[in-house]
Simulated assay, not measured.
Amino acid sequence: MRKIKKIHSAEYRPIADLITYSPLPTRSLQMIDPFLFLNHHGFQTYPPHNNGLPFGPHPHRGMETVTFIVEGDIMHKDSSGHESVIGPGGVQYMTAGKGLIHAEVSSSEFKKEGGDLEILQLWLNLPASKKMMTPNYIGLQKDEIPAFELDERKIQVQQLFGEWNGVKGAFEGTFPITMSTVYLQEGAEFTKEIPEDENIFFYIVRGKLDVNDTHVAFRNLVEFQNSGSALNIKAMEDSILILGHALPFNEPVVAQGPFVMNTQEQIYEAYQDYQEGKFGNWKG
Rank of each mutant, 00 (worst) to 15 (best):
H82W: 09
H82P: 01
E83F: 12
S84V: 00
V85L: 07
V85E: 05
P88I: 04
G89R: 10
G89H: 12
V91N: 09
Q92V: 07
Y93D: 08
A96C: 05
G99W: 08
G99T: 14
L100I: 11
H102C: 05
H102I: 02
H102P: 11
H102W: 08
V105I: 10
S106G: 08
S106P: 15
E109R: 03
E109Y: 06
E109S: 07
K111L: 03
K111E: 09
K111S: 02
K112Y: 15
D116I: 04
D116W: 09
D116H: 11
E118L: 09
I119T: 04
I119V: 02
L122G: 09
L122S: 03
L122R: 04
N125T: 05
L126I: 14
P127R: 04
A128P: 15
S129F: 15
K131N: 12
K131D: 12
M133Q: 15
P135R: 02
P135K: 02
N136E: 15
N136A: 15
Y137P: 07
I138Q: 15
I138M: 12
L140N: 06
D143M: 03
P146L: 01
A147P: 14
F148Q: 00
D151K: 01
E152A: 03
E152Q: 03
R153Y: 13
K154Q: 02
K154Y: 00
Q158H: 06
L160W: 03
L160S: 01
G162T: 05
G162C: 01
W164R: 11
N165P: 14
N165G: 15
G166A: 12
G166Q: 13
V167W: 13
V167D: 14
K168Y: 11
A170N: 09
F171Y: 11
G173S: 13
G173L: 06
I177A: 05
M179Q: 07
V182T: 08
L184C: 09
E186W: 04
G187Y: 00
G187T: 00
F190E: 04
F190K: 03
I194R: 12
I194H: 10
E196N: 05
D197I: 08
N199W: 07
I200A: 04
Y203C: 01
I204E: 11
I204P: 13
I204S: 10
